[in-house]
């Protein structure tokens, strides 16, 4: 049997704050298959970012096991793991060094992980930019000279620079306006296809992942309340919390309004 790319088994995380114990993630298990896009959805405080941080090795889990390609991930990650699992954050302005040119930021990722021949790396940064739909000569610019959407493309290019396998996308489009968001989502979908990437897509807005995720995992207060194929989670959610999340999404078409109406009625029938 082949192993899933990522697997969480009975993972919990407890924080201590002011003498109180806060269970941020409570006994969570799920798998992410290779090439899959799994959406992790919930409100603030649902534990979705804590899960991302544990997968990235920013802090260890309190209980349970996180395995990558069938082998348990150690608390302290070695370089190979850090290369394989990459992060794209919400705000590209704060995740790119303002004093470095775009090219230098990309180059750093290549240097740290020793990707390719030294002599070819400068040229490689240009290719990376072109792969995310930016002109190669953006290399010489600082982040401040780019728009929000362009900066997010650079952050994506950096995550791809070191031949990553799993990309954790933490609200990658929520700082962008809807037009730019649509274009970045398109780019992410295309890159996943062409490079065979695996995504863990974290968001509070369910509608964003409707067209990009294969499966959706819904979290409430640290617990996994529902997980399933995207279409069935949206059309026949089993959990009241999921219905509430879908109903909160602003809709524009008649078909959407009808779906939302039906979910609201279901919720009333269950109440």
């Amino acid at each position: 049997m082949t192993h899933p790319l990522l697997s969480l088994r009975a993972v919990s995380k407890t924080f201590h704050s002011g003498g109180r114990e806060v269970k941020a993630v409570d006994n969570v298990s799920f798998d992410v298959a290779e090439g899959e896009c799994l959406a992790v959805v919930g409100e603030s405080g649902s534990g979705k970012s804590t899960i991302a941080n544990m997968i990235l090795g920013i802090y260890p889990q309190t209980l349970g096991e996180i395995a990558f390609k069938g082998a348990a991930l150690p608390g302290r990650r070695d370089l190979a793991h850090r290369r394989a699992i990459q992060l794209v954050q919400q705000n590209p302005l704060s995740s790119l060094n303002p004093r470095r040119t775009i090219g230098a930021s990309l180059r750093l990722a290549l240097d740290v992980h020793g990707i390719g021949e030294k002599a070819g790396r400068a040229e490689r940064t240009g290719q990376l930019l072109e792969e995310v739909g930016l002109p190669a000569d953006f290399r010489t610019r600082p982040p401040a000279a780019l728009s929000g959407g362009q900066r997010q493309r650079v952050a994506i290019a950096r995550a791809l620079a070191c031949q990553s396998e799993l990309v954790v996308l933490d609200e990658p489009t929520s700082a962008l306006d809807v037009l730019v968001q649509a274009r970045v989502l398109k780019l992410l979908a295309d890159l996943r296809k062409s490079r065979g990437l695996t995504y863990l897509f974290i968001t509070h807005d369910l509608s964003v992942v409707r067209n990009i995720a294969d499966r959706v995992a819904v979290f409430e207060k640290g617990r996994l309340v529902e997980i399933g194929p995207t279409a069935s989670v949206f059309e026949a959610p089993t959990h009241a919390y999921t219905r509430r999340l879908i109903s909160a999404v602003p809709v524009v078409t008649v078909a959407e309004a009808a779906l939302r109406q039906r979910l609201t009625e279901d919720a009333d029938a269950h109440a």
């Binding site: 809807v178 274009r183 398109k186 979908a189 067209n211 990009i212 809709v251």
Partner: peptide
């Protein structure tokens, strides 16, 4: 129309192609 297309749908109609 482009602005409307860009709003993500909960009914899932694919990712729209939006001209820059």
């Amino acid at each position: 129309r482009a602005l409307l297309d860009a709003v993500p749908r909960i009914t899932g109609d694919g990712i729209p192609e939006i001209e820059d």
